[in-house]
Computed example of a mutant assay.
Amino acid sequence: MLYVYRFRLYPKEGQIEFLNRQIGHCRFVYNKLLEIAKKDYEVEGKKWNYYEYKKLLPKLKEEFSFLKEANSQSLQEAVRWLDRAFKNFFKGLAKFPKFKSKKRTNSISIPQHFRIEGNKVKIPKLKKPIRFIKHREIKGKIKSITITKTPTGKFYLNILVDREIEPLPKENKIVAIDVGLTHFCTISNGEKIEKPKHLIESEKRLKKLQRHLSRKEVGSKRFLRLKKRIAKLHEKIKNQRDDFLHKLSRKIIGDNQAVIVEDLNIKGMIKNSRLAKHIADASWRRFIQYLEYKAKLYGRELIKVDTFFPSSKLCSKCGYKNDGLKLSDREWTCPLCKTKHDRDINAALNLLKEGLTRLKRVVGVDRPELMPVEGAMAPCEAGSPSL
């Protein structure tokens, strides 16, 4: 499978200037071709075609001589990025491509003619190699590298490799996970994972810095210093969130042979203005992505249950559907079997049942080697368990 290693780069002063120019050239090509493509469509109705616009690169180099300093393959990759953006737009997966801003995260892709020796990377048109912190060994065949610059001015080396799957020792356990807002997620064995609230906890400090920024003159030294402090705070929140998601997803995948999750429509859910901030802070989509690639890497199974499956409304004991259940109802009692349910645990149990059913359908056997975690199928007759 394809896998990306990420390392912190430490370029020297001259190397920083070189990387900034290279990233700027790729950003310029991306924006220029997007501008041309928009004009062509508005005037002639001409649609995007990757091969036609790629042929414009030599003309751009003649018109803008500074582009000759750039690695030609990196410029071609910039056109490929724009092609991917247009394809995602045509498929309905993203909005119309936007112009790249110098203020945001920017990258340069180098598909060939690079060399990694120990903790240094040699790239085209730069005499001396750049040092990076190699905190783990690189496994697999290296395909390409990408150098990324964050708004805080840090550089990262991303190494794409073709890596062999490394199956973990087999487990006979299977769990279902229901994500939520009161807790980050509830596991079908009754365990509830608390929500870390990284953004909420830093929000007061973030608002204070943004108020100070609004009073400064745009472009002044104080303005730029404050802007960098805000970017660092955003980066810290992101790193804290990623660290939590990586550790949790690795533990769940390591402890269970199969994991069942709900295929949520995050894009639709985030339209709710009251919950959007909390949903974005929880990063459910990223959590499921981490579970997905870790399951593939370590030889586990991830089963996705349909978005419209009423996991919260069904009684996990008798199957009664409570159509009148509201989002504010955290506990409810089934009118048929009189079982008292904790909303989140009940949803996780229903996901577990549905996931097991789908697993049997796909494989065609009862899968005796996969068993729900002990006690997971017991109804919450006494309300919420003490955790």
Rank of each mutant, 00 (worst) to 15 (best):
K149S: 02
L226E: 04
D178C: 04
N158W: 01
S214R: 10
F184E: 04
S220N: 09
L213P: 13
H234Y: 13
N158R: 01
E194A: 15
I260T: 08
K238F: 11
V175I: 15
G268F: 05
K204M: 11
K247D: 03
E203Q: 13
T150Y: 04
V161T: 15
V218L: 12
D242L: 08
Q210T: 03
F132A: 05
K127I: 12
D162H: 02
S214Y: 07
I253C: 14
P169V: 11
S188R: 03
K251L: 12
T186R: 12
S188E: 05
K197C: 07
F132R: 03
K247E: 10
L206I: 01
M269R: 08
R211Q: 11
L224F: 03
K128P: 00
I142A: 00
I230V: 11
L168Q: 05
L181M: 15
E217S: 13
S188K: 08
D162L: 03
I138L: 01
E194V: 07
L264T: 06
S249Y: 02
H198W: 08
H212S: 15
E171N: 07
R215F: 12
P169Q: 06
D162A: 02
I200E: 15
G254L: 12
R163N: 04
A176T: 06
H198F: 08
I177K: 04
K247R: 15
V179T: 14
E235K: 04
I147T: 00
R136V: 00
R250A: 08
S220C: 08
F155P: 03
P167G: 03
K141D: 02
M269S: 14
F184I: 10
K251I: 09
R136C: 01
R274P: 07
L248M: 14
K173V: 06
A231W: 12
N265Q: 14
I230F: 13
K207H: 13
R211C: 09
A231V: 11
H246L: 07
K154M: 02
I187F: 07
K192I: 07
R222P: 10
K227I: 00
I230H: 15
L226Y: 10
F184C: 05
K207E: 15
K232W: 01
G190C: 12
I165V: 11
K127Y: 08
N265F: 08
P196M: 10
F244G: 09
L157S: 05
K141S: 00
E203V: 07
L213W: 10
K173T: 07
E171S: 10
G219Q: 05
G153W: 02
R250T: 09
I200L: 15
K195L: 12
T152N: 04
K192Q: 12
V261M: 13
E171C: 02
I237Y: 07
V175T: 12
K134S: 00
I193C: 14
D255V: 11
Q210K: 14
I159S: 04
K247A: 07
S202R: 14
K128G: 03
S214W: 11
R163F: 01
K228N: 09
I130A: 02
D242M: 13
N272P: 14
L213R: 10
K170I: 04
I230D: 03
M269I: 08
K232C: 04
L224G: 02
R225Q: 14
A258I: 08
K271L: 13
N265A: 10
S249R: 03
E217N: 14
G153I: 01
E203C: 05
P151W: 01
H135R: 11
K192N: 05
I200S: 15
F155R: 00
T148S: 01
K221W: 06
